[in-house]
Design a protein around this nucleic acid. Structure first.
Lengths: 357, 357
DNA sequence: TTGTAAGCGTTATCAG
DNA sequence: CTGATAACGCTTACAA
């Protein structure tokens, strides 16, 4: 019936093939897909039909993106492997917020794993970037900014030309510290997130602090310290990875080294949940023997009675998404937003235990 | 010093501009980026340098993808909005597994929100798809298969030509049901996930069951029923959305309608955690007054003592990713894998309470 | 309403 | 080691 089957399966069917089969111009076929109002319904129907029989499934996205100059994709960079991001409830919450914002505009979200190599940043087909808590010295930032695309920075040092969405890290940290002070604690442990690259586990030395390049960590740490001043003795441990296991391990080590500690400030709820687990193993009563305050207030913390600094994580994501959408829409003044944090006191924090005989 | 500034900011800098500035061919500039070994180091250095000064940040990803015929992106479809996906720990775990597999190959992950519209499926620049628990009748499947790209189906009815990764849904459900039967329960409630589109909340009627198009739901439901047979009375409720809130609400409604219920089978741990919350509100002791068994065994369930059917969620994601990588690598026989499930009995399930004097 | 033609920014091939 | 050239598959003024 028809004329050709140029080569069995060698070449894929293109818009041109459809045009040829119908003896019309490629432009018309393109219009059939992208501007239905530009051609008669009957012709359009025929086009779609032969496309079907020829096995043509619509314009190639790559080609049309190239031609149009937009890919319809938002790139999301996280300063860790993706598998790690998904393991952190706070990160998931954030991603969910971003997703809500971008899917409202029919944009897709491209997750870019960004451990050390910047290649993925340079070769990702996206219209803009959202960068989530990258370390300050990271080579990622120059690579991202170098692409010349709209950028939103989240939870990290603002950069000129990029939008910024962050939270009041210091305020939250101060509230947490004040809370423990008010409860009478005078020897407090701090379970810190990573200070900088390379990631490391263990007690924080002054030397290690010179490598403090994560802005969130830096801000919280100094806020804890400032608030506490000389009212309590502090012992700081650095986590290698934001996991409950790490939190538990740090607790064991810290309490072994400093049994006089009666309270722990944790920079994430994930770490704090590990503390709870460790306390159970050690037979310590929370909060009687050990008070614990987390950070983030992830959903599961409520059920566990974990005191924590609440931050609007999902909302932060949504704002980040919206900030990028604005930039994409031609807005030239990048947003700069700081969201509030507040302490939620639950049952994991209480009066200091009697340390006497 | 240099000669030109062709137009202030009008056109973006391309590879050709760099070539022109150096009076060499575009091919050489391309090689400078993609095949360093194809040109002298000195020339390459000059190329990179002028690129820098011209503000050229490397080959356009879109263009090179078009030319190469590969985008380096894996598309991930989820039968719900993305924001919803991120709210479900099991989904996050799964995504994390997929991420681990694809990031090992330096591929990126494109999250495609797929509520009802198939447009995003047709216009996504990807090399292959992973489809996660889509409803059987969904228009998504034809749209995906129509693209003619490698496809991996997860937790849904297998399709010819696509790889399949799933779990032993029925086995897990049977173990859960058997467990409750062994504990003496004779009136059991089932908190079911969605049966089909449109999503609905409430008691499941025979009429509603005709719309049962989610394979996972269907399989678990019939397995629960088969195992229980006539050994207990069953009451089934359908959740509108997989959230703890919904689980709590269903519990309230179900126990109000059928106070004689002493045990609940939940199709997800997220729902089951809502049950725990509702029980607390109602002043019911778990498991004394009410036994609860979930499904998925998400990480937070251990700390809550929730009995659950364990499935290797993250591993499932990793296998799905790997199955797609194989297909991408030219493998022509799609994998077909079913992973095991098993009951983990914890403290949320116990002997049936004495019902009355 | 439909066709023409000129790219979009790259890379692969092949000759020099 | 370097360069010309021809695609890759599509969209969009603009002309007919």
């Amino acid at each position: 019936m028809a004329s050709a089957s140029p080569s069995p399966t060698l070449r894929r069917v293109t818009l041109k093939d459809v045009a040829r089969a119908l003896k019309i111009s490629p432009a018309t076929v393109s219009n059939a897909y992208n501007r239905p109002d530009q051609l008669s319904p009957s012709l359009r129907a025929r086009v779609l039909e032969t496309a079907q029989t020829l096995g043509y499934s619509g314009p190639d996205p790559l080609a049309s993106s190239l031609r149009r100059g937009r890919s319809g994709v938002v790139g999301l960079l996280y300063d860790a492997t993706l598998s790690y991001a998904f393991a952190d409830p706070a990160a998931s919450l954030f991603l969910g917020g971003v997703a809500r914002a971008v899917e409202a505009q029919a944009l897709n979200l491209l997750l870019i794993p960004s451990p050390q190599d910047t290649a993925p940043v340079r070769t990702a087909s996206v219209d803009g970037f959202i960068v989530y808590s990258a370390s300050d010295g990271s080579e990622l930032l120059p690579a991202v900014m170098g692409r010349g695309l709209p950028v939103v920075l989240v939870d990290q040092t603002p950069l000129p030309g990029a939008a910024y969405i962050g939270i009041d890290d210091a305020g939250g940290a101060r509230q947490a510290a004040r809370h423990l002070l008010d409860l009478g604690h005078t020897t407090i442990g701090i379970l810190s997130l990573e200070l900088g690259w390379p990631h490391r586990h263990g007690p924080v030395t002054p030397e290690r602090e010179t490598q403090l390049t994560y802005r969130t960590t830096a801000t919280r740490l100094s806020a804890y310290r400032e608030e506490i001043g000389t009212q309590a003795t502090l012992h700081v441990m650095e986590a290698h990875g934001n996991t409950p296991q790490e939190g538990a391990l740090m607790t064991l080590e810290l309490l072994e080294a400093h049994p006089e500690i009666t309270a722990l400030l944790c920079m994430s709820d994930v770490l704090a949940q590990g503390v709870l687990e460790a306390a159970r193993q050690l037979g310590l009563q929370v909060p009687h023997d050990l008070s614990v305050v987390g950070y983030d207030d992830i959903p599961s913390s409520a059920a566990l009675g974990l005191s924590s600094v609440h931050q609007p994580t999902a909302h932060k994501g949504e704002l980040a998404g919206r900030a990028l959408l604005e930039l994409l829409g031609g807005e030239t003044t990048p947003q700069h937003v700081t969201l509030p944090t507040h302490l939620v006191a639950r049952s994991s924090s209480g009066k200091r235990r009697d340390t006497g005989p």
